[in-house]
Simulated assay, not measured.
Amino acid sequence: MAAAGDGPWLDGAAGRLVRPYQVSNGRTRPSTALDLLSHVMATGVTPLGYLGPEHTQALELCRDPVSVAEVAAHLKLPAAVTKVLLSDLVDCGALTTKPPTFHHNPTDRSLLEAVLDGLRRQL
């Protein structure tokens, strides 16, 4: 049986009923360069033509700026498939993207320790 809120696309015993390659129509490369930390946000433009249910869900998640990784987690899809879906939405003007910005060195030891401390507090 599907868990509450999962809709018809997930089954508790079998997993995802629609395989990821079907969601992206077999495509493995996005047309727009997206990093997992890139932020995407809806523009308010209504996409023309048919979009699948995953496109609609992704667009709803992007009402506020959100990272590609967060969208993938919410959709329960691999990051590569999520990038293809998001690039479709960027191509039709429904999403805008912003590359990740680092105000500090992302490999700075103090920054990494702060992230680790935050994660420990969450557990």
Rank of each mutant, 00 (worst) to 15 (best):
M1V: 01
G5D: 00
G7N: 01
P8G: 01
L10S: 02
L10I: 01
A13K: 06
A14V: 12
G15N: 01
G15F: 04
L17K: 11
Y21M: 01
Q22G: 05
P30H: 09
S31T: 15
S31A: 14
T32R: 10
L34R: 02
L36R: 14
L36G: 12
L37V: 04
L37T: 01
V40T: 00
M41R: 15
A42M: 05
T43K: 07
V45L: 08
L48G: 10
Y50R: 12
L51H: 14
P53R: 10
E60Q: 15
E60R: 14
L61M: 13
L61H: 09
L61N: 03
D64L: 14
V66T: 15
V66N: 03
S67R: 10
E70L: 13
V71H: 02
A72E: 07
A72M: 08
A73Q: 04
A73F: 09
L75D: 08
K76E: 09
P78H: 01
V84S: 03
L85F: 08
D88N: 06
L89V: 13
D91C: 12
A94V: 12
A94M: 12
T96Q: 15
T96S: 15
K98W: 06
P100T: 01
T101V: 15
H104I: 10
N105K: 10
T107A: 14
T107C: 13
R109M: 12
A114S: 15
L119I: 07
R120S: 05
R121M: 05
